[in-house]
């Protein structure tokens, strides 16, 4: 009884169940952030003048404490996963938007000129040239956003059992079981490292065209 991976019943999940929940609550916001960032970043590339205000907005969003978000969002979504994930998605923008903008801008001007001269329209240029060449920069951004999202999910425990692995921290106090806290922290750290490794692997698979040297930046 009370082994390292045995969890109090009020968590309503097995250990692996919590891991799955944690990943879901951490990754969906990053994915949503990416979906929002791509068009926003493209607008910033197309119309340079919107980039500074966009950067300002994402930075301000990042500066708002998640608790403040929860207070507002609970009115609409209750004490739910959605309430936890919305701030996380907004936080990811501060990393993803500049990463994608930099990536798209890193396409050499002569490559773009050649693409235009060969008769690739703006849409083709974006999907066939700019986006693929921006992949390394985008994944670099995703790595930061993912790892930070995985650690930030825990804060969901503040609104009642929505912090996935973070909920174990609360129970550790309530039941005087410090092992639960250790477990929570270690598991979150391992998840972060694994997710990061997966992204590096994806990058390597997606970019066989990158010089080997400096491949793991």
């Amino acid at each position: 009884m009370n082994g390292f991976f045995d969890l109090p019943s009020d968590l309503q999940h097995s250990y692996l169940g919590l891991v799955g929940l944690h990943l879901r609550e951490a990754l969906i916001p990053v994915l949503a952030g990416l979906i929002v960032s791509l068009p926003v970043a493209q607008l910033c590339v197309r119309f340079r003048w919107i980039y500074p205000p966009v950067l300002g907005i994402t930075t301000v969003l990042y500066a708002i404490p998640s608790l403040a978000f929860f207070v507002v969002l609970i009115d609409y979504f209750g004490q739910s996963e959605t309430t936890v994930m919305i701030p996380l998605a907004l936080y990811s923008l501060v990393v993803l938007v500049p990463a994608i903008v930099d990536g798209v801008r890193s396409v050499p001007p002569e490559t773009l000129a050649a693409a235009e001269a060969m008769g690739l329209g703006a849409v083709r240029r974006y999907f066939q040239v700019q986006l693929p060449i921006a992949v390394p920069a985008i994944i670099a951004g995703l790595r930061v956003a993912t790892v930070s999202s995985i650690s930030l999910v825990s804060v969901g425990m503040l609104i009642g059992n929505q912090g996935a692995l973070g909920n174990m921290l609360y129970d550790a106090q309530t039941y005087h079981r410090p092992a639960l806290a250790v477990n929570s922290v270690l598991t979150i750290a391992v998840l972060g490292i694994l997710a990061d490794a997966v992204l590096v692997l994806v990058r390597i698979l997606l970019t066989p065209w990158m010089p080997r040297k400096g491949a793991t930046r």
Binding site: T111, A114, A117
Partner: peptide, 23 residues
């Protein structure tokens, strides 16, 4: 149409401007 015109003219640029992500 502009892209039809461009596809009927080969274009070579300084530094080649190759697509680095393609073979």
């Amino acid at each position: 149409p502009v892209n039809t015109l461009r596809r009927s003219m080969g274009y070579v640029i300084q530094n080649a401007g190759l697509f680095q992500h393609r073979t």
